[in-house]
Design a protein around this nucleic acid. Structure first.
Length: 121
DNA sequence: ATTCTGACTTGGG
DNA sequence: CCCCAAGCCAGAA
């Protein structure tokens, strides 16, 4: 029907975006990973995948947000500005039993977070 | 107010 | 499979 709730109500614009994104990321259980777009969509912001990355970038050290469980649509760790950091994320994921493929790719079909009862496919 | 950037996504060649 | 271009939107300067 029409457009999915693409735009949030004017009552919670700006600033309210990140808290919501963090909440969505916190919902990702250990051993699972979600894509930026998935997190954004779950938070209610379908096209804000970028903003998710932005929000995570602003995360303070020691935050409870499992930022490492967020990967790009290809199932890979998004390349960031600081080289070497992706190794950290990869390591954190492996600690949660999330293993990478031969090309540093995660099988989203297996480790992808499936919110609600939405059966795969 | 305008301008630029970015831990993204999807589509086409 | 890889590479390139366009779309998208919020936040900071």
């Amino acid at each position: 029907m029409h457009r999915e709730s693409g735009k949030p109500p004017p009552t919670i614009t700006r600033g309210a975006l990140r808290p919501r994104i963090y909440a969505a990321v916190r919902r990702i259980p250990p051993g699972k990973v979600a894509t930026y777009g998935q997190v954004a969509a779950f938070a209610g912001f379908a096209r804000h995948a970028r903003q998710v990355g932005y929000a995570l970038n602003d995360l303070p050290s020691g935050s409870e947000v499992p930022w490492h469980r967020v990967v790009n649509a290809r199932g890979e760790v998004s390349p960031r500005a600081t080289p070497g950091w992706e190794e950290v994320q990869k390591d954190l994921l492996e600690q949660e039993e999330v293993y990478f493929g031969p090309h540093d790719r995660i099988d989203l079909a297996r480790y992808g977070w499936k919110p609600r009862a939405t059966r795969g496919v």
